[in-house]
Design a protein around this nucleic acid. Sequence first.
DNA 1: TTGTGTATATTCACTGGTCAGTATACATAC
DNA 2: GTATGTATACTGACCAGTGAATATACACAA
Lengths: 208, 208
Amino acid sequence: MAPPVTDTRERIIAAASKLFYSDGIRGVSVDAVAAKAGLTKRTLYYHFRSKDDLVAAYLAARDQPNLALFKRWFDEAEGGLPDKVEAIFRNLARSARHPKWKGCGFLRTSAELANLPGHPAIRIGAAHKKKFENWLRVTFEAGGIGEASRLARQILLLLDGSFAVVLLHRDPSYMETAGEAARSLTATALPARRKRAVARAGRRQHGT
Amino acid sequence: MAPPVTDTRERIIAAASKLFYSDGIRGVSVDAVAAKAGLTKRTLYYHFRSKDDLVAAYLAARDQPNLALFKRWFDEAEGGLPDKVEAIFRNLARSARHPKWKGCGFLRTSAELANLPGHPAIRIGAAHKKKFENWLRVTFEAGGIGEASRLARQILLLLDGSFAVVLLHRDPSYMETAGEAARSLTATALPARRKRAVARAGRRQHGT
DNA sequence: TTGTGTATATTCACTGGTCAGTATACATAC
DNA sequence: GTATGTATACTGACCAGTGAATATACACAA
């Protein structure tokens, strides 16, 4: 019998993901995760060495899907670079209106475990955000932006700021404000020739 | 005997403040706070109805001093509005280099207690950030900025974003990046006449 | 084909410790 | 002699992690 290891392992991670994201790390017991996954705690400890391991696995499982989602929002948006950047924030605002939305799992975990700087989960979170920042930078470089590195950091700051602020105030409109700021900074960083081309493209599309 | 109520109360809050800020809410027991304050848990429960009350008191005690600090950084900075805004971020970057720095207590608490949206501590945090945003808005209005409300939100987003990002990466240089972005957005929002005046003032001061 | 060993996978029941909150009593001040 | 403040000692619940046993699958030998 015994289904392949990965099945159980992933069922555990799925259960952990829901609970940790919803109630925080220290707010969820290993027993609760096991129960949600439909097995005993002892079985969970067969697949994960410790709770910390489980937390790390929870975030590692969110890494790629999260990045892919941002890239998709960017790719599917119409218009120039500023429009595409803003689209990320608009889509995020839509997500944030779901009742179960509770901010960014990476940032919330890093805030909760701030007293354990070397924790594996924090390293995974830091790597995730670095990947996002690097993707932004490369994208901006390809778009002909000179200070691509600085702009990427600025957009990241606005994004993570909107996670924090919207979580606190429960008001997703801050994400649209962040999107406008991101658009504005991107447009300013665009070289003049590019700006004119983008403006022409915008007029063609929106009929203004 | 028995020194006035407030003394003990404030000794408890001081102890709670250090511990909650350093290790998070759920990571600190009431016993630990009592021990740090040099008294028993039972005494602590004489002064506070519950741990939640104590957490709320911890944040309430940080409200005014925090706002005053930001205002002081702003007031004492030289130059025009963009310079003064940027000064807040530069001072924050300096704070963030202290080894005990662990981000913004309000944001970290709201992240940790995200599953308890009505928690008194979260309401206090939200009110605190609103006060800061309103002070920014009023200041921008006095400075002749048209879209003062929008700019205030944008600066807030950059500020809270830098708290989150610097906490994750332990790299205060993000705060300087946020400061540059804040300066840039402020300068863009400044009316043209103002901008020239600010530029002149800047040249006089920096000798460029 | 059938027996047997071994690694994988799972369970029940438990330990030692921590935690928020309390019952009760004692001390001091006015 | 009552208000306020402090301490000792406790409760009941929870929690991370473990010991010991069991069940299954599969490889290989008789």
